[in-house]
Amino acid sequence: MTVIDPTAGDLAASSVSVPDAEVEHAVDTGEVASWLQVTPLMILLTLFFGLPMLVVLAVSFFDFDRTDIIPAFIFDNYIDLFRSEVTLRLYLSSLKFAAIVWAVTLILGFNIAYFLVFHVRSLLWQIGLFLVCTVPFLTSNIIRMISWIPFLGRNGIFNQALERAGVISHPLEFLLFSDFAVVVAYVHLFTLFMVVPIFNSMARIDKSLLEAARDAGAGRFRVVAEIVLPLSKTGIALGTIFVVTLVMGDSFVVRTMSGGQSASVVSALQNEVAALQYPPAAASAIIMVIIVTLMVAGILRLVDVRKELAG
């Protein structure tokens, strides 16, 4: 048995002909493979997302008449947008919905995820109940939305039940085609986007941390506040990004469920599109994208979401 003297290493190293370039090449093949694997995705997203968004940006500076858009470089669309009082009202309305829905879905989502992760002990039950929450997400949003109509309507199940119980003598009017109905539908549609990321974060928490905290004398609520909440913050951030962008970007729910009484930035934009006023719609979209991007960037500054997503 021999052990090479350290000096022999130096000798050998000088005789080894492994140019660094060759090594770099070996590293490169991995990188090239990755690029090739990601290329189809990038091509599709560039064609159907990157390029179209650039077109929106360009068209937002275009002129238009009754029937057509006219290539130009004018700021009128933006100026009109900022001059209009409606703009501010629409944004306030959208932000109001986003804030309410965010708060409600966060409370619901956090508690549901907490229940599934920390209270349901059998894995089979956990998977089963998780699926129960997930399956509606895979069915039609419109159908789920309109399914509130027979519930909340003037002669709907809710009013009928309340009247029969003698709680009210006249049907409640505010239930359907109101902001209330809009919020109910949003919560119904989007809570899952809060549940899943928080569930994923919580599932990664080592249960012994909770036991350690309890041993140290922390009560139930202290354990949640000191351990569970901080360790699920990436999930909360991710859920927040989903819910806020979904609500801010929606027009269909707000139209249907408010019966046309409320509007959002995007529903107003949809009206402009219907009237073939593409440049103002594009300008409005760009402003919205900037605002949403700032909100998302703010959240990302607080929490590193990529680590959570990309593992």
Partner: peptide
């Protein structure tokens, strides 16, 4: 098996430094 003057770097960190070893 001979490991001859091997260095392995991962970015800034050096995992193995100019190491030589022969295993008969």
């Amino acid at each position: 098996v001979s490991v001859v003057g091997v260095t392995k770097r991962y970015g800034e960190t050096v995992a193995v430094k100019d190491l030589s070893l022969t295993i008969p």
